[in-house]
Design a protein around this nucleic acid. Structure first.
Lengths: 208, 208
DNA sequence: GTTTAAATCAAACAACCGTTTAACTGCTTT
DNA sequence: AAAGCAGTTAAACGGTTGTTTGATTTAAAC
């Protein structure tokens, strides 16, 4: 069975997101995935390499989406911002467990390799968004803003909702255990909010 | 010596922020604080109770600041927003290690007591900010916005910068090991950005 | 100077950690 | 039928974990 690897990765993702990397034992993962303890070393080599495999596995999905968006010459900067938010919110809310791991572990993780890997992924995404805003500024439709913090604000809002899922479910009266309902209600809310926010923030007409 | 307790708390804070709760051993903390291993159990009872003591210790500082701000009747909603951002950014950037622990551990921590404690603190802060925005809306100077996500955006931006300190230092060309320089450059940047952002986002004249 | 209690310490505790071992399965290839 | 091999297993490995013990020091109270 080839999908036993995937099964282990899914279990690891759920447990890392819930209890953290150090808070999750290999025995936890094996038990959750219903495989023998030794299989994890057998398939992945070590717990740390399992995390690397998980990051590679999940990152490969979205790789290239942003690049495509940026190459589309027909879209105006405003359209690109809208598309960008749609893509990003979908991606992160649908994979919030993975996003949780990624943001929790950049400061925590000891391995230089993994930290660099995560940083590289974040910077790559960052550069793509920067391009869109730069284009809008060149076309005189976006005003001058603090680039790093504008991106940080979008990312941060998503991270905030993701990392404190149960808190935001409580605040917004969503059942946190109803995955389907969470996505249905949360995704359009966040999309609408971020679009409004950036529309007001970036519009050259709102120059202070 | 009474301040040996404080010394342990400081060491625990630094190590928890850097390596996470589960990634830090009691021996690490004892070594860093220069005290005997057994002193931690002696003073705090257990590692988990040490974390609770740390949260209580640091939370007591800022408790009440928001309440005072809200009671000040002379300030307009816009002034309150500005004051709020000043207070918040100072508080969080100056205590970024603690903020790091607080955000990292809400999803991770297993103990129901601690999770409830953190959630309560967050919700209390949340309610205070909500009050300010509500007042501005009643006075017809703020437009209607998604309350939860507007607050989440402010918190999230700060969390983003805090949790990915080294990434944002790299992006903004700040030496991440120079604490003084980090604060001097980062604090005004974040304050200015958040004020601009909220000004555009909340202003009733920018109704879409 | 004796008493009493708090503070400190090295050592030991059992439990758990990530990883490895070596035996054993089922299945394909010769 | 024998050989080979990936998949699977229970058991064991050495090391680390959080916590406790019991002896020893310190310092204040009488």
């Amino acid at each position: 069975m080839k999908d036993k690897r995937v099964h282990i990765l899914d279990s690891a993702e759920a447990l890392f997101a819930e209890k953290g990397f150090d808070g999750t034992s290999v025995r936890d993962i094996a038990g959750h995935a219903g495989v023998n303890l030794a299989m994890i070393s057998y398939y992945f080599g070590s717990k740390e390499k399992l995390l690397v495999a998980l990051i590679a596995h999940r990152s490969s999905y979205t790789h290239g989406i942003l690049e495509e968006l940026n190459k589309d010459e027909k879209l105006s900067p405003w359209n690109k911002i809208e598309r960008l938010i749609d893509l990003y919110v979908d991606k992160i809310v649908n994979n919030y467990k993975f996003h949780c791991i990624m943001t929790m572990h950049l400061p925590t993780i000891q391995s230089d390799d993994i930290r660099e890997m995560i940083t590289d992924i974040k910077i790559r995404n960052f550069e793509q968004i920067k391009k869109i805003i730069n284009e809008g500024q060149k076309n005189k439709v976006f005003r001058k803003v603090d680039m790093e913090l504008t991106v940080g604000c979008v990312m941060g809002t998503l991270t905030q909702v993701t990392l404190s899922k149960s808190l935001y479910c409580r605040l917004m009266h969503i059942d946190k255990n109803d995955e389907e309902g969470y996505r249905e209600k949360m995704i359009p809310k966040i999309k609408a909010h971020l679009k409004e926010l950036l529309k007001a923030h970036l519009d050259i007409k709102n120059q202070n």
